[in-house]
């Protein structure tokens, strides 16, 4: 199939960017979206042009490295998959595809379609962990956890931190990401110990970095490649509310 690509080109964070049109020919319908971009880049290298920079790593839909805002949707038109898992058969021959980087103040463009998602790491550093003593291996069944709670924690933990929620949100809010990270610990006994500090620190870091507020539009849930539910956002709101309202006397 032959395609016209309208791609955002930006040499560096501080320089101005613009859309550039490219033509690619004879793309297999079975090629993945990233393979199609590889073909384009081969073509650019042969012509002595600067190849298009885009993030990718595992190409198996589990690492969270690939991004791309394709035709107005993070990770393209398919539900529940990342860009690398999307195939060209989702597009029509002769179609024009608009490819943009994630747009959010805390995600500055590094080059072309690559954005700096260090902001997510900073949120994790603020509380997305549990403190455990090192030593011998604890017994697997020492702490019984109801199956239902374990399932909910696992659903939340399936977040790969790609940033599609921020990209999809009209407010560039990171609530779904932070909620998933808060939820996965909130459901488990091991996470309850630091629950109060965790939710407060992670939310305040999220706000400080300049992500927007949640408008409950649920675009994040619709675009999340791991289909993480907005019920986790409600859980985080509860966790946050109770941590602020109900707590022992502070030191």
């Amino acid at each position: 199939m032959d395609l016209t690509l309208k791609i955002w080109r930006q040499p560096s964070t501080d320089e101005k960017g613009k859309f550039v049109d490219y033509q690619v020919q004879d793309i297999s319908a079975d090629a993945s979206f990233l393979e199609m971009l590889d073909v384009l880049n081969e073509q650019l290298v042969v012509n002595d042009e600067d190849p298009v920079a885009f993030d990718h790593d595992c190409r198996e839909g589990i690492c969270g490295a690939c991004s791309l805002y394709i035709n107005g949707r993070p990770h393209g038109p398919d539900k529940g998959i990342t860009t690398c898992q999307m195939h060209m058969r989702r597009f029509k021959d002769g179609e024009t595809i608009v490819i943009e980087p994630w747009r959010a103040k805390p995600f500055p463009v590094i080059k072309d379609l690559m954005v700096d998602r260090t902001a997510f790491d900073e949120i994790i550093r603020a509380g997305g962990y549990i403190s455990v003593g090192t030593g011998g291996m604890p017994d697997a069944n020492a702490i019984p956890i109801p199956k239902r709670d374990a399932d909910i924690a696992m659903d939340a933990a399936s977040c790969i931190g790609c940033g599609a929620c921020v990209a999809a949100c009209k407010n560039a809010s990171a609530m779904l990401f932070v909620a998933a990270k808060v939820s996965q610990f909130a459901m488990l006994p091991q996470g309850k110990v630091e629950a109060r500090e965790r939710v407060q620190n992670m939310v305040s870091k999220m706000d400080e970095l300049g992500f927007g507020n949640c408008s409950n539009t649920y675009a994040c849930e619709a675009e999340c490649p791991k289909e993480i539910s907005v019920s986790h956002i409600a859980r985080m709101n509860r966790e946050f509310f109770s941590s602020k309202l109900i707590s022992e006397k502070e030191k």
């Binding site: 309208k6 955002w8 859309f19 805002y69 035709n71 107005g72 949707r73 608009v98 943009e100 747009r103 999809a168 009209k170 409950n216 539009t217 649920y218 675009a219 849930e221 619709a222 675009e223």
Partner: peptide, 10 residues
């Protein structure tokens, strides 16, 4: 964005 998102459910 150049292309407006349309995935809002509400």
């Amino acid at each position: 964005y150049n292309r407006k998102g349309y995935s809002e459910l509400s």
